[in-house]
Amino acid sequence: MKIKIDDLTGHKIQALIREHLLGMLEETPPESSHALNVDQLKKPGITFWSAWEEDELLGCGALKELDRTHAEVKSMRTSSAHLRKGVAKSILEHMIEVAKGRGYQRLSLETGSMESFAPARRLYESKGFQYCGPFADYREDPYSVFMSKEL
């Protein structure tokens, strides 16, 4: 698996982001969905990675800098053809190492509270993320769970 910074111009990654957005809206009301579209992921302060096996897209993830010491995990998505193969774990581990290298002291994330998000929550728990309250501009929401990890 090769994890690389992605400029989000390829049709495969754009399709995966569309799938991600649609998947979030199937589970979450629009006002409670915090997934970013391609244009939002291209904004300064966000680094976006994709994972590949030759020319096959496996998954993606992003880090959004909140301040010099705090970043947010965004857009974690595994291609439906590669679920339960360790793709998300590899991407998350890569992002944690990059965050440490950048000198961030904390990583936080927002994910869904519904049962369909349980595998994601278990992954984050296994990597040391702990449940916390809202951070940055988030507010309490029955559809959201907030987690944070000290680096």
Rank of each mutant, 00 (worst) to 15 (best):
K2C: 01
D6F: 00
D6N: 10
D6T: 10
D7T: 06
L8Q: 10
T9D: 07
K12R: 15
I13R: 08
I13M: 13
A15P: 02
I17W: 03
R18W: 06
R18C: 11
M24C: 08
M24P: 00
L25Y: 00
E26L: 08
T28D: 00
T28Y: 12
T28K: 00
S33Q: 07
A35S: 14
A35P: 00
L36A: 08
V38P: 02
D39M: 05
L41D: 03
K43Y: 01
P44D: 12
I46Q: 09
F48N: 04
W49K: 04
W49S: 07
E53N: 14
L57S: 02
G61A: 06
G61W: 04
L63R: 09
K64V: 08
D67V: 00
R68K: 13
R68P: 00
V73H: 11
K74Y: 07
S75D: 09
R77A: 11
R84T: 05
V87N: 01
A88C: 09
K89N: 15
S90E: 14
A99H: 09
G101N: 13
R102S: 10
Y104V: 00
Y104A: 00
L107H: 11
S108P: 07
E110M: 05
S113N: 08
A118I: 03
P119L: 12
R122D: 11
R122K: 15
K127P: 03
G133Q: 10
R139Q: 14
Y143V: 01
S144N: 07
M147A: 12
S148D: 13
S148N: 10
L151F: 02
